[in-house]
Simulated assay, not measured.
Amino acid sequence: MPEEVPLWLTPNEAASGVIRVVDLPTGSVNLRIPPVRDNSLIKVSTATGGTTFIRIRVTDAQPQPGPRRAFTGSPLARPLFILVALCVLLAVVVLLTRQGDSSPSASGPGAGATAPTPSGTGDETGHPDSATHDTGTGPALTMPPVAPSPYRAGTCLDGTIPDSTTPVSVSDVDVVACSSADAHYRVIQTFHGTTDMSRCRGNSDTQYSFSSERTLNGRTISSVVYCLVGLGSYAR
């Protein structure tokens, strides 16, 4: 049933007609009221396609107007807005997580060693995303993603590159000070834009080769090959 809205008029306004601001459920509007009598109904079409009736009240003393009504919309609108905002936030988190994906691998030593299958990323300050180290028999090891910059020549690494002909997961290889007793390998040369570890064969000092490749959404965005020498008991 259409809602009725009371409108109080003085006898003069009711007799001659008047333009008044009327508060409807959909908002305030200016209405031209024709000459009317007390208790008359005026039909008004709202902006939303609905209908509201204005109930005319004629009196010399008009009551104080009550608080205006505000159209708040559907009670489901606010929860729906919050749900949409949470979905957008979740999508952003997933996108940022995928942007850091990389698949690392590493393998082993010696000038003249056959190049193993590489993939991963490197770090100029010493933390590769993923890497492939070449040990004399061509082992490969997978390292967890870390920083995205490539290693500089002179960077020293700790840990142990195992002698293995199959991929081996390792997590103890990291950057250390070259003066540290834990420094086992040192980068002596780098090649950007390739994962071909045989490039290190041209450097006669190479004892280990290390490839690093960074991917984004399945596409390679950077690749580096490192030539290493062993330090102390790790020298060959």
Rank of each mutant, 00 (worst) to 15 (best):
T160Q: 09
Y185P: 01
H133W: 15
I221Y: 01
S180G: 09
R214L: 12
D134H: 08
H133M: 11
S179H: 05
L157W: 04
Y208A: 10
D182P: 03
A183N: 01
T215A: 11
F191L: 05
L228M: 14
T206L: 10
S180K: 02
S209M: 11
L216M: 12
T121S: 15
G126W: 10
L231Y: 09
C156F: 07
E124Q: 13
L228S: 01
Y226C: 02
T206H: 08
G193N: 04
N217T: 03
V176M: 01
M143K: 04
G218R: 04
R219H: 05
S212I: 08
P150V: 01
H133K: 05
D163R: 13
V187P: 09
S233H: 11
H133Q: 08
L231M: 12
S119G: 14
D129T: 03
T121A: 15
T137F: 14
V229Q: 14
Q189F: 00
D163P: 12
F210W: 14
C200W: 09
I188H: 03
S179M: 00
H192A: 15
I188N: 03
T190K: 10
S169G: 12
S130M: 10
R214W: 07
T220W: 14
V146H: 07
V229L: 06
V173Y: 03
R219I: 01
T137Q: 15
T165R: 07
I188S: 01
T137I: 14
D205R: 14
T135V: 09
